[in-house]
Simulated assay, not measured.
Amino acid sequence: MMTAFARTIILYFLIMVGLRLMGKRQIGELEPSELVLTMMISDLATVPMQDFGIPLLAGVIPILTLLAISMLLSQISLRHLRFRAMVCGTPSVLIRNGELQQDAMRRNRYTLDELLEELRGQGIANIADVKYAVLENSGQLSVLPWAAQQPPTASQLGLEVEDDVTLPVVLINDGRVLAKNLTLCGKDNAWLNKTLRKEKVSSPREVFLMTLDEQGQVVCVKKEGLK
């Protein structure tokens, strides 16, 4: 029992480290080589977890080998565009200037129904409204409508808009004070305690979320159910 537990924990953290090395991507955004790597690693990990007769290294070594190959291919791809195109493929234009590129659709085995479904998902009902539709290496469809079909921006309308977009920093997360973020904002515990008193809160443990943006605005959300 303890052997199975220990093997599972080791392989779990090994795979988690490997996926972190691959970067932050969703499954639907993985390139073909990355998807194959993920599937092979998952299969290799299940064998030593289920069969105790197989040494743990029989699963760890192949996983480490695949991760090393993946990192090597990534480094080569960064330096050689042709190699990257061979391994990962290249984007394909399915719609150009409002016209379907049927040859590109056939090469990618991309049906008309799939294309229309993707366009509807992005709020486009007419193919003629699209200037470019590009099938990316990840399988996602990037749609670029004609300028006349896009909503106008403030600069196009000649309006002067103040850029008031700020990035709030979390200071308290579910009752826990994030000291690193507090220091990053140039604040200390004395400032925090003073701010909590203004919010009629006696302790950080009573706060579910507190943020501070670049303009000095504080947002404090108290925990529910506290008396």
Rank of each mutant, 00 (worst) to 15 (best):
I9D: 06
L11F: 11
F13E: 05
I15W: 00
I15G: 04
L19D: 03
R20T: 07
G23Q: 10
Q26P: 03
G28A: 05
S33K: 09
L35H: 06
T38A: 14
I41M: 11
T46E: 12
D51G: 01
A68G: 15
M71G: 06
L78P: 01
L78H: 10
H80Y: 13
F83C: 02
F83D: 02
A85T: 11
M86N: 09
C88I: 08
G89A: 09
S92W: 02
L94T: 01
R96G: 02
Y110F: 15
L116G: 03
L119H: 06
L119M: 14
R120E: 13
Q122F: 05
G123Y: 02
Y132N: 06
Y132M: 07
E136I: 02
P151C: 02
P152M: 09
Q156A: 13
L157D: 00
L157Y: 02
L157E: 04
P168Q: 05
V169F: 02
V170T: 14
L178W: 03
N181A: 04
L184P: 00
N189P: 00
W191N: 05
L192W: 07
K194E: 15
S203L: 03
R205Q: 13
L209C: 07
M210C: 10
M210G: 00
T211K: 04
D213Q: 08
D213R: 06
E214K: 12
Q215Y: 11
V219C: 08
C220Q: 05
C220N: 12
V221G: 11
G225C: 10
L226I: 15
L226W: 09
K227V: 09
